[in-house]
Amino acid sequence: MDPSAKRAIYIQYIVGRLTIFAAAPLVLLAIKIAGYRVKNLEAVRKKVRRLMSEYPGPWLVCANHLTLIDSVILLWAMAPVTRHIARFDQMPWNVPEHMNFNRQMLVRIACYLTKCLPIQRGGNRDAVLSILEKCAWILQQGGNLMIFPEGTRSRTGRVNTEDFPYGTGRLFLNTPGCRVMCMYLRGEGQETYTNFPAIGERFHMDVEECFPRTRLKGLRAQRDCAGQIVRHLAAMEAAYFASL
């Protein structure tokens, strides 16, 4: 990867590290003001902590996608603010859609400080590949990365197992030692995709490790592994609805 791109990531990491003392409590405050709750928060945090202490990384954190702030809710649910501050290195990088990232200066700053690398989905192929290259490099350095394997918010409100990109499989296969943590997040009142969850929403969240395996090679292997991850999320979703 281009040395200037590596330098930019280092600088972003250091600036984020220095400001996480302010950024994390502010994000928590915003979540509290919105009244968001995760009903099994302690169990989720315990499981994430156990997985990350058993294996420090690289983790590819793969979640379903229904709202623009899924990654914010997921990050808050993964660990308490104190842990985000103490273990900023474990906090996953994530890849928001450039249009969402770019809407307001405050959002841009918040995203920059919380390890976001904006991507323009369906945009210039070189730009997309450049972000994927950065993601791969972060994973290869032992960093963690949060990604939405469906590529976009599900238009049906259910995990889309038919039409998804294969970048997740590529990142997984190109990172020796990479492990996959699947997260299923759903607001109890969330019927389909929206920009934001409803104020006061209560979320269900599950965390499971997924073990993609393939005997295929090249692009077929990427497609196979990405499919296994998406289907794992779909199975978590099915378990959620079966439990209602």
Binding site: G122, R125, V128, G151, D163, F164, P165, Y166, G167, L219, R220, Q222, R223
Partner: peptide, 19 residues
């Protein structure tokens, strides 16, 4: 991708089909 409006995942499918 840009002119034919094929998304990137389908481009991978196309390449596999080419193979």
């Amino acid at each position: 991708i840009q002119d034919l409006k094929v998304n990137s995942a389908r481009l991978v499918d196309i390449i596999i089909k080419v193979e």
